[in-house]
Design a protein around this nucleic acid. Structure first.
Lengths: 332, 332
DNA sequence: GTAAAAAATGTTATCGATATCATCATGCTG
DNA sequence: CAGCATGATGATATCGATAACATTTTTTAC
């Protein structure tokens, strides 16, 4: 900037002002400076600017995996809002591991984000502390934590799953299995499993048909494999609920390979309303959680907190995202 | 840091040294400082560090869309390598738009990344200039540009598509259609279309069955829709090649809905070896471009350039990624 | 035409960590 | 125990932009 100033025959301060064009610099001077800078190949250094202004102009989001269309949709929704406000989005992925998440949060906070978005409501104690003392808006998404760190934009995975069980059970099926991760690494998956078990027990139905698919994320392939195991071990199963559409579709393909009619012999339900749900033949019965809307709402909330008059200490907002049951052909 | 120093009874310099534990600080002093800092809730400010050291410790990647499993895999491969070297990855998405890419590159360069990874080989002139004068390693991926900016890790989309046409044509089918984007926004898609046309013409086959699916990315839904149009307009079609597995699978489902046998009446081929290709019934004939390996290779290259002795001005490396034909049931 | 207001530009100190050089403490050698 | 190497710590300037205040130039008002 000093070089540009010298070359343009003005002070550095004028150059600085010329670059954030709101300030009071004569139009002619500004154009001249801009042109000079362009010719010199000058690139503004936002590192220095960020340090001086104490504003990093970016928002961080921690997701379990970039490789998941649902989270990608949330990222897209968030990204749209954040970028429209002139900020950038920094994405970190935790690989479904709260320890890794803690480390990531530490790293991200060192870069002084203006706000941070988390996926899920379960975190290490240390991560919670760090976030709380960071003094920036924290938004937990994809969940309704009992004891939120700050703001929340999400839905209850367990309650939503219970509604889905109600739908399946209403068709008279009682031997219902759940395909999903067996650990607690994927907290949303664990919540869904918990919702399944609760709903089954509330109806006096056996809730012991839990088929594990190993470490998250649940893939189409792992769903097919789990279905194969289930069909071998408990061929009398009447319905299968999967932790996600991907696993559900995998299960459906396994039925197709074996000539098992869906939903005739076995009903299948997924979760997440992925693209595959609508295209699949038959379409999947699933739950639409509007992942993009989650991101958008979180983004809008953050932008209004940062740009609005509201102080960071404002009362935490809890936004519950409505989920809808999308009845397809696999479980009418 | 000043506060921590005062509280721990040492100078700021000692605190600074205590945090990058390589330096010569007595172990006892370091532990004391670390503990004091932890208690005070001190969070290291990497903004200041980055400014002083002129090293941002992050690498940027520009992808067309986060919402695409192939690019997500590349991001994952890159992320693994970059994070293992202690750096962070900043992801920007260009929405398949070179103008937007140019703007994004400008923004990213202002944050002084240590290297930048691009998807595709087509960029605006201004973006090329900026990148060239940035003085950092630039890696173009997913393509083999004629005039690369710097390093390259990719494959030829057109040549790969030609190989796929060869496979289909070898089965004796000649009325072959291509389903893909009709514009040039998705440069990789456009290259594949070009490869299709070239291969068809080289065989003296008609290359006019091009079915557009609107703006990228090609989705399962848009593939199904395109297939429906194709079947209505040109019911005599014998084979369909899609710009991606997602569109291919959508096309397959449309055939299933209409009771058209695949591959009996119509053969279908995709591109990308997405999860769906292996799980689909029948499995899709597709091209595996090993997206994750692309990311890993690019990441390894960058890390070796940054951490190795090699100067940034070193000779550009061109790494061609081998693609493999994966013959499934849709086009044996 | 002059005084006051407004606009445009300049000067200096600063954000928080660190490179560099300086200083002080400690250990080792003969 | 002097003399020197080594280890540990401190003081100061600096990275590049900008806030805050100071100064100069231009415009407006009477």
């Amino acid at each position: 900037m000093k070089d540009v100033a010298k070359s343009a025959g003005v002070s550095v301060m004028t150059v600085s002002r010329a670059f954030k064009n709101d300030s009071s610099v004569k139009e002619k001077t500004r154009d001249h400076i801009r042109k000079t800078a362009e010719e010199m190949g000058y690139v503004f250094d936002s590192l220095a600017s960020n340090l001086r202004t104490q504003r990093s102009n970016f928002v961080a989001i921690v997701i379990p995996s970039v490789n998941n269309a649902n989270f990608a949709d949330t990222v897209r929704g968030l990204s749209d809002e954040i970028e429209a406000s002139g900020r950038q989005l920094l994405i970190g992925n935790s690989n479904y591991d709260v320890q890794r998440e803690e480390k990531l949060i530490d790293q991200l906070l060192q870069r002084r984000p203006e706000a941070i978005v988390l996926t899920g409501g379960r975190h290490t104690d240390r991560a919670r502390q760090r976030l709380q003392s960071a003094g920036i808006p924290v938004v937990e998404t994809w969940d309704l934590p009992e004891d939120p760190i700050g703001h929340v934009v999400g839905f209850s995975n367990s309650a939503t799953m219970e509604a889905l069980v109600a739908h399946i059970a209403a068709s008279g099926r009682s031997r219902i299995a759940f395909i999903g991760g067996d650990g607690n690494g994927d907290t949303r998956g664990a919540e869904r499993r918990r919702g399944f078990v609760q709903a089954m027990e509330a109806r006096g139905l056996p809730a012991d048909r839990l088929v594990g698919i190993g470490s998250p994320p649940a893939s189409m392939h792992s769903g097919a494999e789990a279905m194969a195991r289930l069909l071998n071990d408990q061929p009398d199963v009447e319905a299968v609920m999967a932790v996600s559409d991907l696993a559900a579709f995998g299960a459906l393909t396994e039925c197709m390979r074996r000539g098992i009619s869906v939903p005739g012999q076995i009903a299948i339900a997924g979760f997440g309303a992925y693209d595959i749900a609508a295209v699949s033949v038959p379409p999947l019965t699933t739950i639409d959680v509007t992942p993009r809307a989650i991101g958008q709402k979180a983004g809008a909330m953050i932008v209004s907190l940062l740009d609005g008059q509201g102080l960071p200490g404002d009362a935490p907002q809890i936004v519950e995202i409505p989920t809808t049951l999308s009845v397809g052909g696999t479980a009418p």
